[in-house]
C-alpha cells in the first residue's frame, strides 16, 4: 500500500491436464495494482511467472492455445471479451485443457 495502489487479489486455477504445466493447481495471486489488469496481461504474467516449461503448450501468439477453455467466475471468457476482460478483485480465473486423454 506504500505506493497508494491496492494490489489485485485473484485466484488462478488449472484443470483438465493444464495443471501438469504448472507447479500448483490452485494459485492465490496478489498482482501489483499499479495499472489495469486485463486477462491478456494475466496470460503473459502466468507465462513469465507460473509456467514451468514449454510455453507453447499454454500460449499461442497473444492468446491461449486452441483447446484450452478459460472461465472467469464460472463464466466463459468468450462472453466477456476474452483478453480484453478487465480483472476485478477476487475473480477466479480457470483454465481447463480439453487436449488431455479422453
Amino acid at each position: 500500500m506504500t505506493s497508494g495502489y491496492k494490489d489485485l487479489s485473484i485466484t488462478v486455477e488449472f484443470r483438465g491436464g493444464a495443471e501438469l504445466l504448472f507447479e500448483k493447481k490452485k494459485n492465490e495471486l496478489n498482482l501489483p495494482g499499479d495499472e489495469e489488469w486485463t486477462l491478456r496481461r494475466l496470460l503473459f504474467w502466468i507465462r513469465d511467472n507460473l509456467l514451468k516449461d514449454r510455453p507453447e503448450l499454454f500460449l499461442l501468439g497473444d492468446t491461449v492455445r486452441p483447446g484450452i477453455l478459460v472461465l472467469v467466475n464460472d463464466e466463459d471468457w468468450e462472453l466477456l471479451g476474452q483478453g480484453e476482460y478487465k480483472l476485478k478483485p477476487r475473480d477466479t480465473v480457470l483454465f481447463i485443457s480439453t487436449l488431455h486423454g479422453g
Binding site: R15, G16, I96, T98, G102
Partner: peptide, 9 residues
C-alpha cells in the same frame, strides 16, 4: 470435445 469438457465441468 469442448462441450464435453464444459459439460463435465
Amino acid at each position: 470435445e469442448k462441450e464435453i469438457v464444459m459439460y463435465a465441468y
